[in-house]
Amino acid sequence: MDRRQILVAVIGLALFALVPPLAGIFDQPFYVDMFARIMIFAIAAVSLDLILGYGGMVSFGHAAYIGVGAYAVGILSYYGIDNGFVQFPVAIAAAALIALVFGLMSLRTTGVYFIMITLAFAQMLYFLGISLEEFGGDDGMPAYRSEFAGLIDLTDADQFYYLVFAFLVAALVVTHRLIHSRFGAVVRGAKANERRMQAMGFPTYRYKLAAFTIAGTMCGIAGALFANWNEFVSPDAMHWTRSGEIMIMVIMGGMGTLIGPVLGATGLLLLEEYLPEWMEALIAGTGEHWMVVMGPILIAIVLFGRGGIYALFARRGGDDG
């Protein structure tokens, strides 16, 4: 199974790498921008899958870390600190800290309580964002693209694209190593049978907490990139519907698979982009009601698309570990 996973991942990434040259050839620069956004959310989805798919932790507040990473960049930029070598470490540290604190308090609960607590924490940050008048309140605030001492120029669409690409590759490599390490074995084991893991001697709480923190940190990087992509930061990035979207990406692409979340992010964001156009072309005037169609599509995927998009590429059996 695992070879196949890596093969699908490599092919998928190769296609992503080809977007800028192809967009150049066909003179469609818009696609570079669009796929950069897709990759940013792919990083977020990969990070969620680490705890959701592999760890069985149904965190419904993952967009919080996008917000933390984005606001770290936005606020530093507001105070005139545009240096990416400062912004990114701060974004990472802030997301790690928030994830650690949220994890400490939520991981004592399980099931529906865990879902509700993670959701509540994320909404708390959302409302905090709204209350921060200094930083634009619910209108948000501008963020300028990070500067990396002239090494890379993020205002250049292609350079920005490949920076995001590099982060996505890094996120996948790190996740791959993690889930196959001893640490990953404990996290996956706790999903399979937590009671037995404890009876064998694993204090599962601290391993789950570590996984939760790593996932939040990784998602914080997506947030820092998102602030750059959007050149704008607002509480909207942390709204619970955003968390839901990231979760749908993971389910749609294939929970507990390495590349599934990337496929899911691509699928969902492309659907959001093109479904209105397709509907408009089919029956004029329906385009603006695209959500009416989107909803049932998502429900159908969740209900019937077991294994998600990834399952179309690979047979699955047992645990992907």
Binding site: L178, H180, S181, R182, F183, G184, A185, F202
Partner: peptide
């Protein structure tokens, strides 16, 4: 088991 890198 805080060993994150080598395959188990």
């Amino acid at each position: 088991s805080f060993r994150f890198w080598r395959p188990a």
